[in-house]
Each structure stands twice: as C-alpha cells, then as structure tokens.
Design a protein around this nucleic acid. Structure first.
Lengths: 347, 347
DNA sequence: GTGAAAGCGCTAACAG
DNA sequence: CTGTTAGCGCTTTCAC
C-alpha cells in the first residue's frame, strides 16, 4: 500500500541532492565514498528501488530493454519450448520479455502487438498469423525490430527462422510410398497457416513424383485440436475406400490420429516430434524439428538487429530430421518384427 | 529507424495544442468533431501511437497495467498451461504479462522479480523457489501484490493457490497398498520444493496408516529431469531387494519411470497427469491436477488484490483427481483383464 | 565532488 | 471547447 519511495525521498533522508542519489544508484564514479555510503544507507532504510520506467523516459539511448514474444498458443509444448529459449537469451542480456498468445487470431495479434508497442518494446519475436501486414510495416517504421519464427510473414521484409516444411514432409510421404502405400491421406490444420500450406505442398510434391494423383477425398484441412482430428480420421477410415496410411500436418493432428488409431489400423507419420512418441504401440515416426533452436536463433537475430545490425533481411532455415520408429507400417505383409501391433494397412 | 512521433509532433501537424491531441487519443469527450478529425488525420499521417509508459508516469492511478509471471520452467507443459491461463485472464482485463523462469534458482528468481518490480508491475503471480522471503516482503511493502501458485511461500502472508498434494499422494499410495504392494518406492524431485515435501509426507502417512515402515533404501529425492529419474529407477530395481511398486513425485520422474519400465516390470503411479498417459502400455495411473485452473484462480485472486481487495490472505486448495488406468498392477496374480503387459510386480 | 535547471512524453488541474 | 501551467521520476547538461 505504501507509495514507492522516490529518489527525492532518498535524497532528503541522506541530506544530499537528488542528483547525487542518481549517481549512486546508477553506479557512476565521482561520488565521495562517505557520501555514497550515506546514500546507500538511506536506500536500504527506505527500501528504495529505481523506477526503470521513468529512467528510460529520459535516457539518451531510448531503449526499454524489453522485447515482446507473440506465439500462437503458449500452452502448446512446441511454442512453450520456443518461448523458454527466447526468454533465456533475453535474460542473458538483461532484457525482459512480454508474452502474448494470438490463438491464430489476427485481431488478438494486433491487440497484443499494439499494447507491446505502446510499452516501447525494442523488438518482437513473432509467430505471425496471416494478417496485419500494414500494421507491422508501421511498427517497423517506428523502429520496432521484428523477427519471425516458425513462419515467415510474407510480404514483410524481416528476418525469419523456420524449417524446410516442404522437404521434411516430402521425405515423410516418400517413406510411406516406399513401404508400398498409395492411398495416403493428408490431414492438417488451417491452410491460412504457412507451415500447413508448405507441408501440404510437400505432400503433393511427393505424390506427384511417384506418379500418383492426390485423391481429394483423402485430404482434410482446417483441423484445430485433437478431437477434431480424431473425428476426421474416423470419418476417413469409415468411408468406402479408406486410406492405408496417414500423414498428419502437426502434433495435435498426430495425437488425434493416435487416438483414432486405437480402434483402427493404418500407417501413420506426422510432422513434429512429441513426448512419448517412442513409447507408443507402435512408436510413431515423425518429422522432428527443434523448437528451442528456433527460439534461440530468432532471439539472437533480434538482438543483433537491436544492437544495430541493419543488413538485408535474413532467412534462416533449420534442419528437420525424419525419425523412423516403425509406424510407417507396410501396405502389405506381416506385422513388423517384434510382433508389435502396428497401425498397419488392412488391405 | 525513424524516431517515434510524439503528441507534440501530432499537435504541430494538426495545428492544435498538445492537450487537444491528448484528449483525442484518450478518447475523451468534449472535443469538436472537426478538430478531432484533424487530429485523427495527423495521427494517421504520422503513424503516431501513444507512449503508454510516459502516460502511466503521470496518471493519477499509477498502475502500469502489467503483471509479472514467474514460474520454475516455462518449457514444462505444466507451467506453460498455467502461464497460458494467467495470460488469458490478463488479456481479458487489458493487462500485459512479463514472464520469467527461475529454474528453481533463488538468485535468478530475485533477478527476475527485481527487474519486474523496477518496471512497476502491479502484481506478481509467483511459483516461488525456497528463498528470497525478506526480498518479497520488501516488494509487498512497496505495493506490489503477490499471489503464489502451485506452492505457498511459507512465512509470507500472501494468497496461495495449490492442490492438496499430501492427500492426493496418500490416495495414490493407498491404491498401491490395496493391490497388495508393500515394497513401494518413492522417487521425487528436490525436497527444497514444497510440493515434493508434501508428497513425500503423503507417502509416509499412507505407509504408516498401513502399519508399514518406510525403507530408506526405496526412497530417492532430488531427481531433476527424466534421465536422472530413469537411472535411479534402474538402480533401485537392480538392487538386492527391489520394490514391487513405484510412486513418482512429479511428471518428469514418472516419465523416467516409464523409460526404465520398458525393460522391467513394476507397478507405477505418479503425481501429475500427462499427455498420452492413457495410450501407454500399460496406461499410467496418476494423481491429476489442473494447471489451467491453478493459473486462472491465481490470476483472479491477483486482479482482485490489484482492484483493492485487502481481506486477509486466502489459501485456495483445488482438488486432485486419482485416475486409475491400471498401472497400479497387482502384487500377485494374473495380468490385468485385456491381456495387456502391465508393469507388474515380479514376485 | 556536488548541485540547479531543463526536459523525456504525457496528463491533471485550472483558465479562458 | 481549447489552451496553459505544472509536474510524474528520472537523467542530461552545465555550473560551481
């Protein structure tokens, strides 16, 4: 309840001028040890703590030493791992991190970024929704540095850190093709999300390279969350001519497929690794990426920009890794060695 | 690169006084529509955005509309789910959230909270490490509201939201006892963490109630992370007189046990539910708590305090739920119905 | 070494 | 309806 004491209060208590207190608090040299001691004493007695907000208002280098981190959903393990590594990089440099989730809603994204910007953030690590391009351009014109991560903001001239979603997906689909599958379903999240478009493109590309047409009946976009994905898989599998294999476009969709797979059998490969994927029966093969590395790299780029790096926008592509755990199944033939009950094609 | 335009710039551009711009920006009534329009136009032309930091410095209600959220590890799904719900509550009220992870290190906790406080946060949602009590008392004296979540800060007179760890654990251990186990191991994280002490107390209590002595050889504390936990389990099981059942004190330890369980058989019940626990073989029984509810409740309490609620400190205890999925095994007897390979006692 | 004055960008409290 | 003055808590600049 007590009002926070100010430098003025400390100055009065120590019997010196406000300016002397400022110097002591800022750790400047040129204050007599005795005076400094008196000031320190008053600071302790009053419980004074510097107001960094007022400080930054007046300082020449008008930086707030705060960055904003805007992700789709902080509760999603992928984004929280990314967030943690951004936070670590910021902590190392004495920066603070404001966080916000967008839920992939451009309106909320705008709200959040507006508020961050009004708080004078020095920069933004952004997992962009589809919209708000002109708005971001305006922010950048005002001096806010922006780095995109996970997805680029097309049409915005900023640094971006992401993985090669297309190639990663093509590899995974090729893995299914190599095991004899030809009716391969694609299930993904909303196509408005760049990663989802890229992954679908990778799927199309791998199918085309194998001389196979994509059957539109086997493609489902717009799956938000596990239950929706599970339901979609169920419908696909219950339809007349079901797929023998499924490629899932993100971790949540994969989990939905695992859910649906308990009562049905099909080969499954998904984008994004997840905890316990190796402990399932069968263990799930995935295209894995490293969210912590994405966050770390994005933060490093951002701090470089804040420190004055004004080279042309960079695009960093991190590697994906295909992890074959066996759930790719075989379209025809006996169960996998080891006798495990694989999500295996029925025909 | 361009300096951010200020109200002064807008005033000049619109040919009005600074005060008129202030009124328009604040959305106050009592400005002639024509004048307002001229100002709006200037704002648009210059890309002006209000500096909320300068604003808060002068406003009567000296609130920054920012709270700090301090957790053990933002990358941990438990804390990230909690964080998301805190953020949602803040967003609804137009508050911003600064985040920081402590890694359970009091020094980092202090660093982070200091920096938050210097930024004039109105309040703190805190998953406290063991230390820094006097420091927090000083913060509160300065008017920073504090609410603890997941763990209380003993000796600090603040609101706290947590679950009944002791009772939840006792229930789980009783479940193992009921199924005939008597050599039940306890594996947990560092005892400096309140939840871990409580859970161990629940274990002791349930054992004592069953008239069983705790065998110190079956107790391991201080397990940080999955690999350490897996290693500890391995050692326990390879020792002369191994346990037939394991209680694990948090999600990471449970995952370590699952890892170790692939090559060994023992009953297992853990604190904290986790994704895919129901999809493992056997499905893992757990004491579950709701991190989102913890975060939401803590945030609501905090905003109540910020809004002036000065009632005595409240302690909210949320329910845990024991979810029996079968991994409790039977100390003696046939595999569980359904023929699943249960982590079952060997003897 | 120390202090007085000015001002960062904004709003409160008054005038007109 | 609009403008002037003062000042939030601090740092800059320039005196002494």
């Amino acid at each position: 309840m007590a009002a926070r004491p100010t430098m003025k209060d400390v100055a009065r208590a120590a019997g010196v001028s406000l300016m002397t207190v400022s110097r002591v608090v800022a750790g400047e040299t040129g204050v007599a040890p005795q005076t400094a001691a008196r000031v320190e004493e008053a600071i302790r007695a009053l419980g004074y703590q510097r107001n960094d907000i007022a400080r930054n208002l007046r300082r020449k280098a008008q930086d707030s030493r705060t960055i904003g981190l805007v992700v789709d959903d902080l509760a999603n393990p992928f984004f929280s791992a990314l967030a943690r590594s951004v936070e670590d990089e910021a902590y190392r440099r004495g920066f603070l991190v404001l966080v916000g989730s967008t839920n992939d809603d451009p309106r909320r994204e705008r709200d959040v970024v507006s508020a961050f910007s009004a708080r004078q953030v020095d920069g933004l690590v952004l997992v962009p929704t589809g919209g708000n391009r002109p708005f971001f351009r305006a922010q950048m014109a005002r001096g806010v540095k922006v780095v995109c991560v996970d997805r680029p903001a097309t049409g915005l001239d900023v640094d971006c850190v992401a993985v090669d979603n297309r190639a990663g997906t093509a590899t995974a689909v090729r893995h299914l093709l190599d095991r004899g599958h030809s009716r391969i379903a694609y299930l993904g999240d909303r196509q408005e999300i760049w990663t989802q478009r890229e992954r679908y493109a990778g799927y199309e590309q791998a199918m085309a390279a194998a001389g196979l047409a994509v059957d539109p009946a086997l493609v489902r976009h717009g799956l938000r969350g596990v239950p929706e994905a599970a339901k979609a898989i169920g419908e696909l599998m219950d339809a007349p001519n079901p797929p023998t294999a499924v490629f899932s476009g993100n971790d949540l969709v994969t989990l939905g497929a695992v859910d649906a797979g308990a009562s049905r059998r099909f080969a499954l490969v998904g984008f994004d690794d997840f905890l316990l994927a190796d402990k399932l029966d069968p263990p799930i093969s995935v295209v894995s990426q490293d969210p912590a590395a994405l966050g770390r790299t994005a933060a490093q780029l951002l701090f470089g920009r804040i420190d004055g790096d004004d080279a042309a926008a960079r695009s960093v592509v991190l590697a994906t890794r295909f992890i074959d755990r066996g759930s790719g199944g075989d379209a025809v033939g006996p169960p996998l060695p080891g006798g495990r009950a694989v999500y295996q094609a029925a025909e």
